[in-house]
């Protein structure tokens, strides 16, 4: 009985007689990105399960996991591009909606129609639209900023090429330049290394290091385990849930990789499936 007297009924509900469920505000207020308790479902099937992350300031952070682990979904859900079932996303301590200017997104290359009638410079200039605002046209200074960004990724010579005439690596660099011109604090990149040539890969790595040196934080979805140790300060191992998160040297262990890529998830997947089915009549 004495146990109960300490509990208000509300409290009791919160943890239903078990231990305290959660200590909510444990994030340092200035973390570039903190994701709290995020669950995401696609077509009523859970893809991400209860993700909690704090991305530290000024680090290159890689997200690694098998296909369908929800890596891209993690970025998209953080950016409100796909609906979340639950969860909160804070950017530098404030809700993402208020901090859009601090974040730049590099989507997967396949996400757009490369046959679209624009040239490389046009695409990069789109990075400045957020600053320009409604109905105001693009001025020369914006285009100059875009050209500078193209130069930073070594693509200035291709500024007036129609985008379908660029190689995969070049298209990726155009996307990176578009993010650069936003001059954000936090960069979220979805598979920037996928299908690019060696020269582009090196250029991207150099760029990532430049960003880190300038105190920016970069979160990169990555697929190549070979290069993880070389490229990233921190690592997130993801497979529906965060398997491990921390400095690359500590996290990139055989045991963790096995937990990420190995099986052992059959029960949870089954339960997720059952949950999805439960929604349907």
């Amino acid at each position: 009985m004495s146990l109960m007297t300490n509990h208000t009924p509300q409290r009791l509900h919160a943890d239903a007689c078990e231990l305290p469920q959660r200590q909510v505000p444990r994030h340092p207020a200035d973390a570039p990105l903190s994701i709290h308790d995020m669950t995401v479902a696609y077509h009523r099937k859970p893809v991400l399960w209860d993700v909690d992350l704090d991305i530290p300031q000024g680090k290159l952070v890689g997200i690694v996991g098998p296909n369908g682990a929800g890596k891209s979904t993690l970025l998209k859900a953080a950016l409100d591009l796909v609906p979340k079932v639950s969860g909160r996303v804070l950017v530098y301590g404030k809700p993402y909606k208020k901090q859009r200017r601090m974040v730049a997104y590099v989507p997967q290359r396949e996400s757009v129609d490369w046959d679209f009638p624009v040239d490389a410079l046009d695409v990069v200039t789109m990075g400045t639209y957020g600053r320009i605002g409604w109905c105001v046209p693009v001025f020369r200074k914006h285009r100059r900023a875009a050209l500078e960004a193209l130069e930073r990724v070594g693509m200035a010579d291709y500024a007036h090429r129609q985008i379908s005439q660029l190689s995969g690596g070049q298209q990726q660099r155009v996307f990176l330049a578009r993010a650069l011109v936003q001059d954000a604090q936090l960069y979220l990149m979805d598979e920037p290394f996928a299908g690019v040539d060696a020269a582009t890969e090196r250029a991207i790595v150099t760029l990532l290091h430049d960003l880190r040196a300038a105190g920016r934080t970069v979160l990169v979805v990555h697929h190549d385990l070979q290069t993880v140790r070389e490229y990233f300060d921190q690592l997130i191992l993801l497979n529906m849930r965060v398997v491990a998160h921390g400095p690359t040297d500590e996290v990139f262990t055989d045991a963790n990789l096995h937990a990420t890529y190995g099986g052992r998830l059959t029960l949870l997947s089954e339960a997720a499936e059952a949950l999805a089915q439960q929604e349907r009549p």
């Binding site: 998209k76 950016l79 409100d80 591009l81 859009r100 200017r101 974040v103 730049a104 997104y105 989507p107 996400s111 757009v112 129609d113 679209f116 624009v118 046009d122 695409v123 789109m126 639209y129 957020g130 320009i132 409604w134 109905c135 105001v136 046209p137 693009v138 578009r178 936003q182």
Partner: peptide
């Protein structure tokens, strides 16, 4: 024409536009 830039962004890469708050 006034919405030229906005419509261009919408048609090319709407999701990216959304991350900029459009």
């Amino acid at each position: 024409l006034l919405l030229f830039k906005e419509l261009k962004l919408l048609c090319f890469d709407g999701a990216y536009g959304a991350t900029q708050g459009w």
